[in-house]
Design a protein around this nucleic acid. Structure first.
Lengths: 226, 226
DNA sequence: GCCAAAATCGGGAGATTCTCCCAGCCAACC
DNA sequence: GGTTGGCTGGGAGAATCTCCCGATTTTGGC
């Protein structure tokens, strides 16, 4: 058989150059295209599908997860390998939900990427050791995340609380009474054995309920007010 | 004159390979050493100083900032260029405080890294465009961060609140009455025009008061047991 | 050195919120 | 058809928040 073609999606040109170099040293693989955004990756794949797509999760615009979903929606047999800095288990799980076939963290040795590529090219699934360790830890400890003991509604409300919304705003958004939100608020803290709202934010972050963004969510500079 | 020697410090081997390739394509520069941790970078520099040190901020163990400080403590004339993913202004300011001579984000075009290297090699300072834009925006809007209107003590208490500590714990830690902490708590929220504690966390993150850690705070499993 | 301003620390009191308990409703599951 | 669990809210006392105030210390300028 011929060489496996690869689409590289990462927003850092220098990093892409590193991947390319590493991959092309490997016999049997060849980088066919590059993309620096999620939508560019999708369009590139749509134009000419490759055997493997390697994507970073954090890219400008819509995230890498979105790229995975769109590519998989276009071609359900697309083989997508996530190669990212995020070593949190929640990111990996989201990636697999979105349709990824592999997940390798950038802190892994280069060989991990190569071997994952081989596995994926043959139709398998692959995760890097650090993620595998977390999954094992989760299984052994019997719980994936502290929020697993929460009811769906509680998770939803936790997310809104952690995002910074007030009780009134949440009640309004969900068309519930403020009293109900308050009760949930207390109940969530009790279930998680947490005493401060700040810790709710940290739990939500750890559970992957909240997207981390470096932009200030508050402090609207609003220099361009209407 | 001869080539400028460079020490590359980044914890991702693949990424380092990209840097190396990019840099060595450039006449006048040559990668003399690599390091994958902050302390390894320090030791490498100490063993044989290079003209320029390129460091990532996020590395395992002590952070890149620590590497900068230690290298500068050893050699106050060391020229250090931060090349990192973090595009937050607060990170850049911290890097310069630690003694960096340049700050380029990984989302910059490769040319930005090269030109920054040239500037720094000649004893100058350099920041990438996106950071420069943020600095300009800060100057124009008259404030760098919403927390700038806060008194030192308020910033300190905000940090503790955002880290998840309860009123009692903070009062105890600072040897103050709970009442005082409560008053500060209210005052900080009023000054920042914030109504929920969750948003205090986001402000603290945006202001660089809190270190972001993606590691799951739960589920540590002793895998090394027999 | 001196005055003004700001920061630091804490009390008081009323309004608000939190917490815990409870109950009705519904859906799922033996 | 009974039980369990999630969803929605009320009630009431405890706790907290908020806003006001004053005392003291620190800071900054002249």
């Amino acid at each position: 058989m011929g060489e496996r073609t690869i689409l590289l999606a990462d927003d850092h040109p220098v990093v892409r150059a590193g991947y390319r170099k590493l991959i092309e040293q490997q016999p049997g693989f060849c980088v066919a295209a590059e993309a620096d955004t999620a939508s560019a990756a999708y369009l590139a794949y749509r134009r000419s599908p490759t055997d493997i797509v390697i994507v970073d999760l954090s890219m400008p615009g819509s995230s890498g997860l979105e790229a995975i979903r769109r590519i998989r929606a276009f071609d359900h047999k697309a083989r997508i390998l996530v190669f990212t800095m995020h070593d949190g288990l929640s990111y990996a799980l989201k990636a697999f939900e979105a349709g990824a076939a592999g997940y390798v963290t950038k802190s892994s040795p280069p060989e991990a990427l190569i071997s994952a590529m081989s596995v994926i090219a043959q139709g398998g699934k692959s995760v890097s050791d650090d993620i595998a360790r977390q999954i094992a830890a989760e299984r052994l400890s019997g719980r994936s995340s502290p929020i697993n003991g929460l009811a769906p509604r509680e998770v939803e409300i936790l997310q809104l609380i952690a995002s910074g919304m007030t009780t009134d705003e949440i009640a309004d958004a969900l068309s519930l009474s403020q009293k109900t939100i308050q009760n949930y608020h207390s109940g969530i803290k009790a279930k998680l054995d947490i005493r401060t709202d700040a810790n709710l934010v940290w739990v939500a972050i750890a559970a992957g309920l909240i997207e981390m963004k470096s932009a200030t969510p508050v402090a609207e500079v609003d220099a361009s007010s209407s």
